[in-house]
Structures are given as structure tokens and as C-alpha cells.
Design a protein around this nucleic acid. Structure first.
Lengths: 184, 184
DNA sequence: GATTGATTAGTCAATCTTGACTATAATGGA
DNA sequence: TCCATTATAGTCAAGATTGACTAATCAATC
């Protein structure tokens, strides 16, 4: 079975990841993913959960386990990962380990289109970016550090730091240039 | 006017970016974006171009300039950015400069779900990742270096290098551990 | 002048994604 | 006891995205 977009890959991967541990119903998945720690890393909308479950079921990667109800609560459909699902999941995981994402960042467009804003705006904008990056880093430092999360956090921190370094040096270049031009 | 997904933001931004320079028709945009250098950074599918143009037109950010034909070729609808479109464009650019993307990477899931693959697979997978990252870096080094592209390339290179460093150190940790365990 | 292949300009059905909304049940407080 | 609030479990219409496909023209070759 083929996958479409990058979004789709990650969404399926997340659902399969949760189901690989134990059978779950849609709403439970929704609640698990709503947890602050997870939502931050893997944001998925409510609708997508059910949509993806449906697709996975159609592909035989997941199957309806039971339709049960607790007390007079609404019915809920529990899903269980199949053998095929487990194999697919592990295959997706291998790809996730090896493939380097080609995320098209809007910041890159900003750089390419630099001349479309007043050059005088750029230092302020970069300063805001620096602030955002610092904020992100401090968030990461306070992040929960259970063992598996730790690697994620550290990887993310390393990349964000590199971004910060780059951005700061760009900003400094501008400030120096600005200083020399106006001081002479 | 509000924007939905991150995908949507970048797609609109790209189209507005191209239109900010001169009026274009859909197919021309398609060809411009099909160029290797651009496709690499900002991949957009054919269908999305026309879809986004339609949305932008409905929002008054873009207007149909002329429907012309060259010789007996099919008609083509040319679009021109409006004043509102220019303002929106510049606003999106400011956001692109300042906002730090929260891209949900599947590699992070791979790290979180590390125990779902055999630990013995991990070194090979990391080695492949290292190779992919090296490849990406050498691609970036050969990349076209017109002035606006340069900043993009350097930023990307800095982040990819940080990723490489992180991944290599992770791999080395594993190799050392493997060596000591099996050598004693 | 016929055939083949590339180019042009875009369409559209299938699929995916979003998030506001529904309908019921349990809970807490006055 | 009654009412408001929150929790449960999901639906669905509206919008976004994909990419294979169409239908015509032009260019080159046989």
C-alpha cells in the first residue's frame, strides 16, 4: 500500500504507534493526543483520527475489535492493529529513521523574497525570530524527559540551536553593517 | 482572512511571491515551479496551483487579468496580484520571517518508538540516515548560489549539519556500546 | 503528408483534512 | 432536587490536495 503526502505518513504512523501498544477507540486516541506533551510534537485534528482509522481499516492494517459501551455512554468502536498492520508500522518506522525530511519552510521563502520587504524591517523581524527560537529552546529544556522523549527533545534542541546560531549571526551582520554605514 | 494549514500558508505564499513580480497564468507558474532548483525547495503539485489561484481570486487577493491565447493554443487565464494581495503577501512574509515552524517530523516518532524495532537494527538505520544527510549536504553545496538563494542554502546547510552531528554522535554511542559489550 | 512525440493549458474525480457541531450521560453545586 | 457544566464518542459538510488524464497544437522525422 502506498502513502500520499508527508502529512499522511506521519498521521498513520502516530495512530499505528498508539495501536501497536494496545487496542483503542477513536475518542481515546483523541484524548491521548490531546495531552500537552504529545500535542506539541504530533498535532492531529479530531477528524483526522477517525478518517485515518477508516483508511487503515480499509487497508486491513487495523480491524474493528468490538463495539462496546460503558454504562449508558455512547457506543465506541475499538480498533486493534493486525499482523499486516504491524509489518506496515515497522516498515514506516524504518523509513522514518532513515529518510531526511524535505520540509518546505516558509522561512526559506522569506529569505528568497527578502527584497520584497523594506530592508529596514529585516533586523526587527530577525530579532523577533531570535526571540521565538530562544523561547522554543527554553521550552525544550523544560520538556518532560522520560527516556524515549529525551532523544526527541535533544535532537530538536540541537537543530533549534543551530537555527538560533545562524539567525543571530545574520542579525549581527546586519547590525554591524547598519552601524558602520550610519556612523561614518 | 485566515489561513488553515501550514501547507496552505506556504503554497499561497509561493504563488503570491511569483505573482508579486509579474502577472502569470497557471501553466506558467507550473513551469516555473517545475524548475529543478525551485521544485526542490518549494514543491507544489499542478492541481494545487489552480486551486490556490481560485481561492486567492475569491478572496480578492488576485484578479483575472486577461484571458488570452497565443496562436491557436488553448486559452489561458492570466492572474495579477491586487493591492490587497500585496498587503497580504507582505504580512505573510513577516510571519514567515518571525515564526518558528513546528514541523512534526517522523524522525521524532521513530525516536519515541525506538523500542518497537529490534535494537540491533538501529545502527544500520542510523548509518543510512547519516548517508542521507551527507548526501543532502553535498547537494546543498553544489546548489545554485545566486544571492537570494545563498541565504536559503546556508540556513538549510547549517541545520542539516547540526542534524548530521547529532545523528553521528548517536551512532557512535551505539557502536562504542556494541564494541564494549561484545569485546569483553 | 502522415505519424510520432513533445508542449501547452488546464480539468476533475478521488481522496484527505479540518474543526465546529451533535447528542447523550455523568458530575457538582446551590 | 434541579440546573449548569463538563465529559464522552464521534459525525459531517466544507474546503484542500493530488496527479492521472484530456484535448488540442506545434515540431520533427520519415
Amino acid at each position: 500500500m502506498e502513502l500520499g503526502t508527508a502529512t499522511q505518513l506521519i498521521t498513520r504512523l502516530i495512530i499505528l504507534w498508539l495501536l501497536s501498544e494496545r487496542p483503542l477507540h477513536g475518542y481515546r486516541i483523541k484524548r491521548i493526543l490531546a495531552d500537552v506533551a504529545l500535542r506539541h510534537w504530533f498535532p492531529i485534528e479530531t477528524g483526522s483520527i477517525y478518517s485515518v482509522l477508516k483508511t487503515l481499516a480499509a487497508a486491513g492494517l487495523v480491524e474493528t475489535e468490538i463495539v462496546e459501551r460503558e454504562g449508558q455512554r455512547p457506543e465506541r468502536t475499538q480498533f486493534r492493529i493486525t499482523q499486516a498492520g504491524r509489518e506496515h508500522y515497522r516498515e514506516l518506522l524504518r523509513r522514518a529513521w532513515t529518510e531526511v525530511g524535505r520540509s518546505s519552510e516558509s522561512f526559506h521563502l522569506a529569505l528568497a523574497a527578502r527584497s520584497d520587504l523594506d530592508e529596514s524591517e529585516i533586523p526587527e523581524l530577525l530579532a523577533i525570530r531570535v526571540k521565538s527560537l530562544r523561547q522554543r529552546i527554553s521550552e525544550l529544556e523544560m520538556a518532560s524527559n522520560s527516556a524515549p522523549a529525551l532523544a526527541m527533545v535533544e535532537h530538536s534542541r540541537a537543530l533549534t540551536l543551530a537555527d538560533l546560531t545562524w539567525t543571530e549571526s545574520e542579525l549581527e551582520k546586519l547590525n554591524n553593517r547598519g552601524a558602520t554605514t550610519s556612523d561614518i
